[in-house]
Design a protein around this nucleic acid. Sequence first.
DNA 1: CATACATGAATTTTT
DNA 2: TTCATGTATG
Length: 703
Amino acid sequence: MSHPNAAAAPAPAGLNNAQMEAVHHLESPCLVIAGAGSGKTRVITHKIARLLQAGYAPAQIAAITFTNKAAAEMRERARALVGSRAAKPLVVCTFHALGVRILRADGERIGLKPQFSILDSDDVLGLLRDAGATTDAATARRWQWTISSWKNQGLDSAGAAQVVADDEERVAQRVMERYEERLAAYQAVDFDDLIGLPLKLLRTDAEARSRWHETLRYVLIDEVQDTNTVQFELLKQLTDHALPERRGKFTAVGDDDQSIYGWRGATRDNLRRLADEYPTLKVIALNQNYRSTSAILRAANAVIAHNPKLFEKQLFSELGEGEPVRVVESDGEEHEAERAVARIQSLRGQGGAVAGGPGGGAVALRDFAILYRANHQARIFEKALRKAQLPYRVSGGQSFFDRAEIRDLVAWMRLLVNPDDDPAFLRAVTTPKRGIGHQTLAGLGTFAGRWKVSLFEALFAESLGAALPRKAVDGLHEFGRFVNDLQHRAGQTSGAEDAKALLQGWLKDIAYEQHLYDGEDQEKLAAARWSNVMDFIDWVSRRCGGEIDTDGGLTTESERKTVLEVAQSISLIASLAERSEEQDVVTLSTLHAAKGLEWPHVMLVGVNEGLLPFKSEEDDMTPERLEEERRLMYVGITRARQTLMVSTLRRRKRGRELVAGTPSRFIAEMKLHTAATQEDPKARLKALRDAAAARVAAAGKPA
DNA sequence: CATACATGAATTTTT
DNA sequence: TTCATGTATG
């Protein structure tokens, strides 16, 4: 991963004492409480090196993360430390990728054929609409959410039947039953299944379990505080070896104060469970922060002190006092945005005047982040930045793989891997249009439903002729033959050059470029889409050529792969090799999406009651909810390296009139007044002098 | 009655 | 940005 602001610990000479202890503790399960910016990736990668030294083979070590990005960064840092040869066989991947690996190898033992398809959330939504016979996307989305949270608690539809609380859930539970039937019929799994099914396998199949215990002998897991119940159970199963001396070989790394995903099933309580269920658990806290100034950390510590503690931890920094944290009050969102822009411009104008500025030179745009609670808040800042002609990037924008044209091609590839993947079939057979319409597909669907076979299987059934007109059947057969032929060739084609030729030939055969220009009235847009398609083709063929995996997916070796093999791993991959990441632009991001990243200059905006902590009408703010919001504030504060500005609205526009806004309680909790913010001119002067002294001290040190 | 446009409101997100 | 709701117009 190449994000310039990714939390790459500014390398201290070696490891500090706590880090060293964490790295060398192999005797019993280990939990590393890694505060923000305390060098946790460093600990994990060094621990991998330590395990290799202790005699583990690389392929026996698994490092599990939550995102592809984190996995890629981890692999890269491990490679830098232990070398390519040792790093290659390491199992560094996401939870879900590990699930895929287990299911591709052993899924047959629980009735899943190895070429099963992975549905993304759009596919799931379509299936649910179908299963629940609704066209209403909002309803289907609620079902999706409900069903997913049941699955994340380890419940199937039968289990969910025991816990339904109201009528809406009762309906969702029935939809879930039909959804499960469909998944089984399509030989497809959703993202939740990628955790749930491997867990089921390991629980019920002793032989498979012991085989996996032989394969993966030591497990490192990142961000444990973000694990949900099912993921936690999977971790336990993976490390629950039959031999006592081989049991509990894991290191979990996390920070209870950065647990911000409770709303999607993550439970901070898993940290406590680790301590409860593993009496020999060694808990090590990393308290030294290598990212932020003392002024920033003091504010962070003060805020989080209002939460009950799970583990004792107090971050400190040796980077100097730094600039005081600034609180700014604005009249309305526009005003706030203008002031944020003004701050960027003034800090940039100042050049290297800020302590430790990159190379002591000008402050770059990429050094700034504007962080907010909710996505819609970005809008007004975008407007202000555009007006000031400052380039920016909004986090969590539409990903490459979400684009319609890419989803078309991915559907085709999924169909090649698993012709029984009905959602993929439907998309491919109608993209581009080939004279197979609603009527034909409805007929085929009815036929397939009656005989309980997939659409693709139904297509070649003898008796289909009785159910559909001759012309329709001919069209379907032609499509089927085309897919079969392409599938055959894709299974034999490997290497970048050949793969590219195959893919280009395929696009030509289906006249995809024409399809794009037909569907778009503006030629420029169609051309842009086609260029995306070309990027996609390049990307797939490069992987066929055996280029080293940079996406954290499954691959641990770099041999040539067939097009079909590459297609197998495609659903899991969320982003192309980051292309725009290195541009010098201001970052706009939600607090959630900012986790794990850092910037020299951070602005937290919209820090108001109602927004942060967030509160909606029908929402009773439980203490737990408030604590999670506070952790969100904590995460925001600890993203900043040199300066932090916290912005709040005195007044907000509501409709046409301005209404009073209340600064967030978290601002008071930062306890800035002692150091001086704006009230006391004398104290402020002193703070400025201190900061200047700190700058001088910092400038004397090598970077 | 249906469609077009304007207005206002808006949790958080990965795989 | 998107999504839903409401008003105005054909």
